Amino acid sequence: MTLTAIRKVYQGVADRRQTFRMFDRHAQRPDRWQNDDSALFIGEWFEHRQSEHDYMLNILQPLWMRHDMFAMREFLTGSVTSVFFSLAIDGAVRHFHGYCDLADNGSPERMKAAIIERETRPVRAMTRDERLEHIWSATEDGYRGYADERFPVTQRGQRVVMMCASRQARTFRLLDQLTDAEVSTKLPVHLRYLPEQIAA
């Protein structure tokens, strides 16, 4: 079985509005629901507030519950659904959402272990991939999208974000091809100068 990478897709604690935007970060994708989009979601996780955790727990009876996690009864696609975690990390209970493939029985436990490992690292740092995922998650829909006919055929369908040099010079760039300087300008100030971290 090929395991999908588990990845943090938002830095900081998402508020209610951002949490609900994050539930479908790929809403603008071309041919939405035409294909099996499971791979887009499996392994994504982010932190949110306790109020959002409690709201989701009470909105619908969970599919299952364990002492520190529960799964939503409604599936996003195929066997992929939301799993909500309440994890004690460094003496504080924190709340997380992740997409797990429940056809793989070990998926929730691997997600939990990955979150704990990532959030207990002694030095605050971000990988390049985490920086790009945060940019994608935090950018409003009007300023992000997918490469269309303005791009070469080989690039169509890839994620793009708007670079705003000026009102007259707004251009879309492939997210994965942003330079380090462009990545820095798209991040909020408090995240720009975190050390680079080598992916595990």
Rank of each mutant, 00 (worst) to 15 (best):
F20S: 00
F70N: 01
R192E: 08
V183F: 03
H53V: 02
E140L: 11
G145Q: 10
L175W: 04
E47V: 07
A114K: 07
R118V: 05
D54P: 01
V9T: 13
S86A: 15
T4I: 05
Y55K: 09
E149D: 12
W136E: 08
P195Q: 05
A199T: 14
M72F: 01
R21Q: 11
R144I: 03
P108S: 09
R118H: 11
V80Y: 08
D129C: 02
V83G: 07
F151M: 06
A5C: 03
H26W: 15
R25T: 13
D36M: 08
Q34V: 01
M162Q: 14
E74Y: 02
H190G: 00
V83S: 08
I42S: 04
L102W: 05
N35V: 11
L57A: 15
K112C: 13
S137A: 15
M56R: 06
Q61V: 13
T179R: 04
A200V: 10
S51E: 13
I59V: 12
Q155T: 06
Q155W: 03
R192G: 07
S107C: 12
I198K: 14
L132Y: 07
E74I: 11
M65N: 05
R128L: 04
F46I: 01
S51A: 13
P122G: 01
R16I: 05
S79H: 10
V93N: 12
A125E: 12
N58K: 12
A103K: 11
S184G: 05
T171P: 00
A103N: 13
G142A: 15
L87I: 06
A113I: 06
A200C: 01
P62E: 09
P108Y: 11
S38M: 03
A199F: 00
L87M: 09
P122W: 01
P122I: 09
M65K: 13
L63G: 00
E117A: 15
Q197C: 04
F20D: 08
I6R: 05
Y143N: 12
L194Y: 03
A14P: 10
A138I: 07
T81C: 15
M69V: 00
D180A: 14
T179V: 02
R16P: 05
D31A: 10
T81L: 13
T2V: 14
A181L: 11
A88T: 14
D37A: 07
A138R: 14
A92Q: 15
E149I: 06
V123N: 02
L63V: 00
E133M: 12
S184R: 13
A14N: 06
R21Y: 04
Y99Q: 02
S51H: 05
F70Q: 01
R170M: 15
S38I: 06
F46C: 10
K8M: 10
F172Q: 11
L102M: 11
H134V: 07
M163K: 09
T120H: 10
N58G: 15
I115E: 09
Y99A: 03
A114Y: 02
M69L: 12
P152K: 10
A71Y: 02
Q28S: 09
D54T: 07
Y55E: 15
T179Q: 02
T81A: 14
R131Q: 14
R118P: 07
T179G: 10
L178G: 02
E52L: 07
H95W: 14
Y10K: 05
G91F: 07
D104H: 13
L63S: 06
V80S: 09
F23L: 15
A138G: 03
R167T: 08
G106I: 05
K186Y: 01
